[in-house]
Simulated assay, not measured.
Amino acid sequence: MKKWRLSLRLFPLFAIALLLSGCGKEGLSTLIPMGTVAKEQADLMLFSLLIMVLVMVVVIVLFTYAIIKFRKKRGQEDFIPKQVEGNAKLELLWTIIPIILLIILAVPTISKTFAHSDTHVAKGDDVIKVKVTGHQYWWEFEYPDQKIKTAQDLVIPTGKKVVVELTSKDVIHAFWVPALAGKIDANPGQTTSLWLDADKEGTYKGRCAELCGSSHALMYFNVKAVSPDEFKQWSKDMKDGPSAPTTASAKKGEQIFKNNCMSCHAVGEKGGQTAPNLSNFADRENIAGFKEHNKKNLKAWIKNPGKIKPGAEMPSFEDELSDDQINALADYLFSLSVKK
């Protein structure tokens, strides 16, 4: 009796947990598709769900019918109903029906899977090509036709197909933008590909969907869908690069950056290629891919990256730079904007 009472008390908690499990952040839900691929994948999920619901209804109806019809009645304690084991018709029936259902589900699934992996979807100006490289624990985005390289924020034009070619510099990662397309692995030494598009302007959340280390859960990125005209302007501004720093603190920070950071990070085409390109750092959505984009978080990141994102390869500067130097470096990085 006590167990039943405990179960009843816990039931509301289970119900709340079930409801919340269906909740997702804005731009991070497969159930709110915002592109062609995502919509077709959502349709497949709903289609398979309908088949499962249909099977459940049939099973529940038959189970309920059997319980009511063949329940033990008074005066029939020794009654044995007709036995049907070895009935060839029944065995064929419950074998053939699942096969038919699997075929009905498999045909559109296989068809759409091949279609979504076919990157020969458009040519010329109708397609944007992006090379994506996964790192522990950040994403690098290169636009070969526009000759642009950036990180963390993937900018795409609305209404155009985007062909994404993926690889990895270290371990296996997985590129996933739930609102725009399904996930695909990024493997070291190999290239995989998919295509996606966005119907509306906005920021869509991306995630690494393959366990890749201690900060796998923090390997976020954003896909920013803008109008075609805005994308053209952004491409031009990225090639032009950020304006020179104007304040004394930012100028001081530029020199600190050149002395301490440029062997790994690049601004424009100048600098190293082993860490994120920072040409448009001030225009990004987040610090370290997931923290709120402000100077407080940036300074904490510079001081001790491993504390914020365990396993990050960026070294700590807590003992290398003074607070004044870190402040100046933060001022410089927040001056790196390509917006005119």
Rank of each mutant, 00 (worst) to 15 (best):
K2V: 10
K2P: 14
L8I: 12
F11H: 00
F11K: 04
P12Y: 03
I16M: 08
I16R: 00
G27V: 00
S29V: 02
T36Y: 05
V37W: 02
E40I: 03
A42D: 10
D43T: 07
L44A: 00
F47I: 04
V58Y: 09
V61K: 09
K72R: 10
E85P: 04
K89W: 11
T95C: 08
I103F: 01
P108A: 03
P108W: 03
S111E: 09
T113K: 07
H116P: 02
S117T: 09
H120L: 12
V121M: 06
A122G: 02
K123G: 10
D125M: 02
I128R: 02
K131L: 13
H135P: 05
Q136F: 09
E140D: 15
D145R: 10
K161M: 06
D170S: 10
F175D: 02
W176Y: 13
N187Y: 08
P188W: 03
S193T: 08
S193F: 06
L194C: 05
L194K: 03
G206F: 01
L211Q: 12
H216T: 14
A217Q: 15
A225M: 01
P228M: 01
S235W: 00
M238Q: 07
E254Y: 08
Q255M: 12
K258M: 14
H265R: 13
E269M: 13
K270W: 00
N277R: 13
F281L: 05
I287A: 07
E292Y: 07
N294A: 04
K295F: 06
L298N: 06
A300R: 11
G306N: 15
A312G: 11
P315K: 09
L321N: 11
S322N: 12
A328D: 15
L329E: 05
A330E: 07
A330K: 02
V338W: 00
